[in-house]
Simulated assay, not measured.
Amino acid sequence: MIGLDLSGADLSGCVFQESWFTDAKLVGARLIGVDLYRSDAEGADFSGADLTWASLVRVNLDDAVFRGAVLDGADLGKASLYGVDSSAASLRGTRLMGASLIDVDFSGSDLSQAIVRENTFKVTVDETTEFKGMSGTLFGPVQMRGREDRQEISGADLERWLRERGGDVRVLESRG
């Protein structure tokens, strides 16, 4: 499905393990409960797509777009997300355990009840990003986008900042 335009398609419940969705357009697609285990979706556009309860375990999502997408309850265990636009996305209850999140934009996103475990979490957030009930462990730092500037938050400051927003996340010391 490399480069195919599947915008608006209903692929809910389908199993696409080890498939290629590189540069595919899935704008507004219904992908509820879809299984993409070990697939490659590099550069795919999932803007506005519904991936509720999707299995994205070990999926390459580098440079993908999830702007305004719904990933509630999805499993992104050990997925690779580098350079991803997830602004205004809903990730309520999403499992991000062991996922690598580098240069991911979560501005305006809802990460309520999300679960992290030893995640690389070098992401951008803003004052509207939700963290209520988020739990687990992660490595920072986080870039906080303000109206006029950016501020890097890491270590104990990041842990305290997340707690102030309703999260229960322990920030780990960076490796090596």
Rank of each mutant, 00 (worst) to 15 (best):
L4D: 10
L51T: 07
L172R: 13
G166N: 10
V123K: 01
S55Q: 14
I115H: 09
P141S: 08
G83E: 10
G140K: 09
L91D: 00
T22S: 11
E152T: 14
G108L: 08
A114I: 01
G48L: 10
R95I: 10
V65I: 14
S154R: 11
A24E: 07
P141F: 05
E164W: 07
R30H: 12
D50Y: 03
S100I: 10
D63Y: 14
A88L: 14
L26E: 12
A29F: 09
E148T: 15
G3S: 15
L111W: 01
L11P: 06
R170V: 11
E152N: 07
G83I: 10
R38Q: 14
D103P: 00
D103V: 00
S174V: 12
T137Y: 00
A49G: 05
D168M: 12
D103S: 08
I115T: 14
A9T: 13
Q113E: 15
A49E: 08
A79S: 15
K132V: 12
S100L: 11
S80W: 10
W161K: 02
V142I: 09
S39T: 02
G43R: 04
D45E: 08
I32N: 08
L6Q: 09
L111H: 02
G8A: 05
D35Y: 04
V84C: 05
R30I: 01
G73H: 04
S90H: 09
D157K: 11
L11V: 08
D62L: 00
L26Q: 13
C14R: 14
V70D: 15
L158R: 06
F46I: 11
G33Q: 03
S86N: 10
F139T: 11
T124N: 00
